[in-house]
């Protein structure tokens, strides 16, 4: 933001206003406040507990699969699970899962140094939030079995 504009010179406003260009993101700020109210009403502790319970359940259920490799500790994890299925590349896994309506992330997660340490080129990752349910984790497991059938590794 400027204080004044002339033909050959401008005077910048004082800090911090000089670093704010144009109209502030008013709609964005109102939207963010609404989102925060929404999450506070749900209860951040409850959301955290729900995510953790789903991740723990998914971790446990994934253990049933033949050739599964689970990354990270069983307990004390965030609301997500990274894994690999033997003889199925993570990208093939997520493409097939997507066709069954399950959205996963596949790849190096912008973290090649960790991939190198783990000795893999990529992993598949399921992540959970407050709108996910245990039934969806069960569905996710069914789809992982479909993936294994599809690639003939079941």
């Amino acid at each position: 933001m400027i204080a004044s504009v002339d033909y050959h010179e401008s005077t910048w406003n004082t800090v911090p206003h000089r670093f704010e260009a144009g109209t502030p993101d008013i709609a964005g700020a109102i939207g963010l406040a609404a989102a925060m109210d929404y999450l506070e009403a749900l209860g951040r502790d409850r959301i955290f507990a729900h995510d953790q319970a789903l991740a723990a359940y998914a971790y446990e259920r994934l253990g049933e699969l033949k050739g599964i490799r689970l990354f990270g500790p069983r307990v004390g994890r965030a609301g997500l699970v990274s894994f690999l299925l033997a003889d199925v590349h993570a990208h093939d896994l997520v493409t097939v899962a997507d066709q069954f309506g399950v959205a996963l992330r596949g790849g190096h997660h912008c973290n090649q140094p960790l991939m190198k340490k783990l000795g893999v080129s990529s992993t598949a990752r399921a992540s959970f939030y407050f709108y996910n349910t245990r039934a969806e984790v069960d569905r996710f497991l069914d789809v992982m079995r479909e993936v294994q059938r599809f690639f003939g590794v079941a």
Binding site: D92, T95, V96, Q99, F150, F151, G152
Partner: peptide, 15 residues
Amino acid sequence: MSDELNELYQQVILD
């Protein structure tokens, strides 16, 4: 099984 998936992963590709 979706047709698109079978078209992507044809037998030749899997082989």
